[in-house]
């Protein structure tokens, strides 16, 4: 299968008061068409820096992000704008990612700015309505404002916005971390449904291993800006190669041992 995304020796360094911080250090990753790649790590692992670079919202110190073979950072501004239609992003906090002053229609239609032939007026409204139905909301919601929706519904709106240009790659940066458990499950199911229906590829950035296990085909474990381990999700989670991955897996609270008395007997 063709690789839609190829991250090659990607580094992003910052200089702060004379010391260099390697937020991202020589990371190489690939994502095949129609697959879901989970990038998992703790704070400071560089996973959000990676997301920003893949979205071309920041420039790397060195290295490449190739989308369909083109390095994003070699493109002219015009070419980049055209390329942006192919990749969109869903953010962590659905309260921060929707402009409170805009209607749902305006919010969702925003990426159409990238497309000179985008539908306008009535046609645009219909297209937004279709997308709302696609993500489990109602077409009648077009003229409502973000504050009228719950966190989970807002995240659906954000997903609809990311889908309007029919992108082939979706980057989700902790897209379910701010949501309640039952809502998280619904959003994960929505992403799986969209993948099945549209064959969209997903770069899923998260700190939650349980979520990776739930929806990812591949996983990349990151720590301190470096790639620790990568491979098929099942294989990495079942038999991790690296000590850090094992540590991360062990720290995850599971329901294996319930109650402190039980745990104390178990560890003894």
């Amino acid at each position: 299968m063709a690789e839609i995304l190829k991250v090659q020796n990607l580094s992003r360094h910052y200089t702060l008061n004379g010391t260099t911080i390697k937020a991202l250090d020589e990371v190489t990753l690939g994502l095949e068409e129609g697959r879901i790649l989970g990038v998992v790590g703790e704070s400071g692992s560089g996973k959000s820096t990676l997301a920003k670079l893949v979205m071309a919202l920041d420039r790397p110190t060195s290295g490449e992000v190739r989308l369909d073979g083109d390095n994003l950072f070699d493109l002219s501004p015009r070419q980049l704008r055209a390329a942006r239609r192919n990749f969109q992003m869903v953010f962590q906090d659905p309260y921060s990612s929707l402009d409170p002053r805009q209607t749902v229609e305006k919010i969702i239609a925003e990426p159409l700015h990238l497309d000179p032939d985008a539908p306008k007026g009535r046609a645009r409204r219909d297209r937004v309505g279709e997308l709302l139905e696609d993500v489990g909301l109602s077409a009648a919601d077009v003229s409502r404002y973000p504050h009228e929706f719950s966190g989970g519904q807002r995240q659906r709106i954000a997903i609809a916005r990311a889908l309007i240009t029919k992108p082939r790659l979706l980057v989700a940066d902790e897209a379910t971390s701010a949501l309640d458990l039952t809502v998280q499950k619904q959003i994960l199911e929505l992403i799986l449904k969209l993948r099945a229906e549209h064959g969209i590829s997903v770069l899923f950035i998260t700190h939650n291993i349980g979520v990776v296990d739930e929806i990812c085909d591949e996983v990349a474990v990151m720590q301190h800006g470096r790639l620790v381990e990568t491979g098929p999700a099942r294989a990495v989670l079942d038999s991790p190669d690296k000590a850090y991955t094992r540590q991360l897996l062990a720290a995850e609270p599971t329901l294996e041992v319930i109650g402190r008395k039980a745990r104390r007997t178990a560890t003894r």
């Binding site: 980049l80 969109q88 929707l98 402009d99 925003e110 990426p111 700015h113």
Partner: peptide, 13 residues
Amino acid sequence: SRDFVQAARMAGK
């Protein structure tokens, strides 16, 4: 600093 500005940048604005 809000994410909807990032989303607008993603829309090429």
